[in-house]
Amino acid sequence: RELEAFAERFKQRRIKLGVTQADVGSALANLKIPGVGSLSQSTICRFESLTLSHNNMIALKPILQAWLEEAEGAQREKMNKP
Rank of each mutant, 00 (worst) to 15 (best):
C45V: 14
T43W: 06
E8H: 06
T43V: 10
K11L: 03
N55C: 10
R46E: 14
L3P: 03
A27M: 05
S38V: 14
V36F: 02
R46A: 15
K61S: 06
H54K: 12
L39E: 04
S42I: 10
E8Y: 11
L3F: 07
I33P: 07
G37T: 08
G35L: 04
E4G: 06
T43F: 02
E69V: 08
H54A: 13
V24E: 01
P62M: 01
K61V: 07
V19W: 11
E8P: 01
N56T: 10
Q21R: 09
S26W: 13
L28F: 07
L64N: 03
L28G: 02
A29C: 15
I33L: 13
H54E: 14
M79Q: 10
N55I: 07
A27R: 08
G37I: 07
S53P: 13
Q21Y: 08
S49V: 01
Q75C: 11
K81H: 03
L64P: 01
L52H: 04
G73H: 08
N80C: 15
G73Y: 15
A22V: 04
G35F: 15
L3I: 11
S49Y: 03
A29D: 05
L17S: 02
N30L: 08
A7Q: 01
F10I: 01
D23L: 04
K78L: 11
E70D: 11
D23S: 10
V36K: 06
A5R: 12
T20R: 08
S49W: 02
R13N: 06
K78C: 07
A59S: 11
K61N: 03
T51H: 12
L52S: 02
G73E: 15
W67H: 02
I15N: 07
T51K: 13
P34G: 08
I44N: 02
F6H: 02
L50Q: 11
S42M: 10
P82D: 13
K16L: 08
G37F: 06
G73V: 15
R9H: 12
G25V: 15
A5Q: 14
N56S: 14
F6Q: 01
A5W: 05
R46M: 15
R14H: 00
N56A: 14
F6L: 03
G25Y: 09
A74P: 09
W67G: 01
E72S: 04
I63T: 14
E48P: 00
T51E: 14
Q75I: 09
T20C: 12
L3R: 01
I58V: 10
E77C: 08
L68N: 15
W67E: 01
N80M: 12
S38Y: 02
R1T: 11
S40E: 08
N56K: 13
V19P: 01
M57N: 05
N80Q: 15
L39D: 04
C45M: 13
A5V: 09
S26A: 13
C45R: 14
R46Y: 04
L17D: 00
E8G: 09
G37K: 08
I58H: 05
F47N: 00
R13Q: 09
A71G: 03
C45Y: 10
R9I: 12
R1D: 12
E77S: 10
A66R: 11
E48S: 00
N56W: 09
C45I: 12
Q41W: 08
Q65W: 06
A22K: 07
Q21L: 10
E4K: 14
L28D: 01
A7I: 10
K11C: 03
R14L: 01
C45T: 15
R1Q: 03
Q41I: 15
E72N: 03
T20L: 08
G35A: 03
I15R: 10
E69L: 10
Q12F: 06
F47V: 01
E2Y: 04
V36D: 02
M57V: 04
A71N: 14
G35R: 09
N55E: 15
L28K: 02
R9T: 14
G73P: 04
G25H: 15
E69Y: 05
L64T: 01
P82G: 11
I44S: 01
S42E: 12
R76E: 13
T43N: 05
K16T: 10
I15M: 12
S42G: 10
K78D: 06
C45N: 08
E4D: 10
S42R: 12
L17A: 03
Q21W: 06
V19Y: 10
A74V: 12
G25T: 11
Q65A: 10
M79L: 12
L31V: 12
Q41L: 07
Q75N: 09
Q21G: 04
N30Y: 14
K16F: 06
N55S: 11
E72Y: 06
L17P: 00
E77N: 08
P34A: 12
M57F: 04
T51Q: 14
E8I: 04
F10P: 00
A74L: 12
L31M: 12
N80D: 12
M79N: 13
L3T: 04
M79P: 13
E4C: 06
R76C: 13
L17R: 01
